[in-house]
Simulated scan of single mutants.
Amino acid sequence: TAVIYTNKEEKSNLQNAIVRKRGIFYDVIETNGSVHIEKPKQLESGQLRTQVLISWYDKSDKYVIMAVAYDEDVSTITYLNQELIQLNVNGYRLFLGYGIGEYDEMHMFDKNGNCLEQIKE
């Protein structure tokens, strides 16, 4: 199971961990990187629509992908043909997915299904 979290000291960093249930407890198997998140704002031309972190774990092709969407136009994000789960946490629009596969490009779409570039035009 993949979990995302922030810690008390560094609330502006979004981190991920892989945990495995053991009885009534969970063991942390691996933690992988973090992505700096900013408060949502109105984007201007030339700014990044999302911050993205793709982590591999277990020394294999298993991955976790996290994205924070800053652009309101971003409705859906896919990675390796998988639609990421959208979470709204404390005003942030977070997207999460996990699976097995080699590195690929993430794709963003607006509500009409139009593909969006990472840099806002």
Rank of each mutant, 00 (worst) to 15 (best):
E117P: 03
E72Y: 04
S12M: 12
F109E: 01
L53K: 13
F109V: 02
R20H: 09
E83F: 11
S55W: 00
I100A: 10
G97P: 06
I29C: 08
V52T: 12
M106C: 10
N90W: 12
F109H: 02
G91I: 10
G99Y: 03
D110W: 05
D104Q: 12
L80I: 15
N112A: 10
V52E: 08
T50E: 10
G97M: 06
K62Y: 11
Q15H: 14
V68M: 09
L43I: 07
L96M: 13
A17I: 06
V3M: 11
E121Q: 14
I65D: 00
S12K: 13
F95Q: 04
L48H: 13
M66H: 02
Q86N: 12
E121M: 12
E117Y: 07
N7R: 05
G113S: 06
L14H: 01
N16T: 13
G91N: 09
T50L: 12
Y63D: 01
I37L: 15
Y5Q: 08
R93N: 15
Q15M: 15
G101F: 09
K8V: 13
L116V: 02
Q82Y: 03
G97S: 14
T78M: 08
L84E: 01
A2M: 12
V3C: 11
H107K: 15
F95L: 05
V19L: 09
S34L: 10
L96N: 05
V74D: 02
N112V: 04
G97H: 06
N32H: 07
I65L: 11
K39W: 05
F109G: 03
I54E: 02
L48R: 12
I24T: 15
N81Y: 08
L94E: 04
T1F: 07
K8I: 12
Y5E: 08
K120S: 06
K111F: 06
G33M: 04
A69W: 01
Q82N: 10
K62I: 02
A67G: 02
G113Q: 07
K11L: 12
Y70A: 00
Y70M: 01
E121D: 14
N16F: 04
Q86P: 10
N16H: 07
D73H: 03
L43A: 08
K41G: 01
M66T: 08
Q42A: 13
N81L: 08
D71P: 00
C115P: 06
M108Y: 01
I85L: 14
V64S: 01
S45Q: 11
G23I: 04
R22M: 12
V3K: 10
Y98P: 00
L48S: 12
K62V: 01
K8P: 09
L96G: 04
S55G: 10
N114F: 09
N7H: 07
E44P: 05
K21I: 11
Q47Y: 00
S45M: 09
C115W: 07
K59V: 01
E83I: 14
V52K: 04
G23L: 04
Y57N: 03
T31Q: 14
A69H: 02
G113Y: 09
G23H: 04
Q51N: 12
T31G: 04
